[in-house]
Design a protein around this nucleic acid. Sequence first.
DNA 1: CATAAATTGTAATAAATAATTAAATTTAGG
DNA 2: CCTAAATTTAATTATTTATTACAATTTATG
Lengths: 215, 215
Amino acid sequence: MKVEKISELTTNRLSVYLRCLNELAAEGVKTISSDKLAKRFHLNSAQIRKDLAYFGEFGVRGVGYYVKDLRQDLTKILGLEKEQCVAIIGAGRLGTALTDYYGFKQSNFRVAALFDADKEKIGQKVGDVEIFDIKDFAEIAKRDKIDVAVIAVPAQFAQNVLEQITKAGIKAVMNFAPTPLHVEGDIKLKTVDLTISLESLSYFLAQPTNSNGKK
Amino acid sequence: MKVEKISELTTNRLSVYLRCLNELAAEGVKTISSDKLAKRFHLNSAQIRKDLAYFGEFGVRGVGYYVKDLRQDLTKILGLEKEQCVAIIGAGRLGTALTDYYGFKQSNFRVAALFDADKEKIGQKVGDVEIFDIKDFAEIAKRDKIDVAVIAVPAQFAQNVLEQITKAGIKAVMNFAPTPLHVEGDIKLKTVDLTISLESLSYFLAQPTNSNGKK
DNA sequence: CATAAATTGTAATAAATAATTAAATTTAGG
DNA sequence: CCTAAATTTAATTATTTATTACAATTTATG
């Protein structure tokens, strides 16, 4: 196994591969070659092999990959065999929608707590999940062994929330506020910036070269 | 103005620059040099200049950029001066949360319609926005001049929804279903895959090199 | 047991993207 | 009118990422 740094593009693809393998397993497929995998899911077979090669040798020459085995290996590599506890900060529309988001469960994440600054909301529940006062974050994060924090507050509060979170020792943060955040130390911050995505659609529509009837 | 193809990385940065300029304008700053812009927002000044150069000459040598002018220029380039009408398909938690999402308004997008397959939901409203039957998509999209569609349905229905949407002539689609979709023709599809983002956090936490106390 | 077919793993190459540097140009201001 | 400041532009280098090609390995088969 190589020790060089793995690019995020590679690990992102591992997620995709795992998803494909889950489908194949559900269909009862036992083995699959990188070529068939690629053809079926519109991927590139060499890329698959290269991505996997960073982590070891999982295939059998002449045969391909054992679906069940590779699935387990990828699950392990991605750290998905252990449940991760999630706290969502911001109990607005987005935060509460995320609380029920099925994708969390599917990837073995469990939403354990919501946080908000609004006194009215504190103590209420979204499904099984209680809303706590953001002031108590450090305490509750420790008590409930929170691994991951999700920032779902308006942009102007996001930096401050991030600082509180990191002070509480959280190492992995997903940010939905449309603002770049500055992080210090060995913390993984993943920003999902819907504004950028939207504006890239807008840019596309504005291009006169597109046959979108708008010129 | 050059006609070469602009990379999406570039247009994404344009969104960021525009956001910075909005902040500066709000503060009453009149002009700013690429260098000051870069320092202040943790960007790279040469990159800023190069990105802008694809679209024309906006700066004044010896001065920098006039905040107000560059803001207008970027708004124009990104096609944000004209309101875009959005339809959201899937009136579940995510779809309804997105309906109120402030970022849409900020980027001059207006959510004009929701669609669902669930008879119970049809006819109801989320704020001002009515929920229609997905079967009527083509008709209503035409009537309401929908420019952009947002897919917020479970993964297994997403491909089918995409096909209906594109058949109705929609050219820009934002997909939240955690599945890669296949698109034909001159259509811009932007997938926001939260599962991948989550699993990349999980991968990070699983790395033994991190000082996250988990080894 | 030898050989053909299949498929991996990986080295080499190509392509895309980003960062750096340097020179030419323009403007503002004394 | 001269100088300093800052942009524009081009050229170069470095880095990252993706693709191609092929040797090595395994399995299946007669």
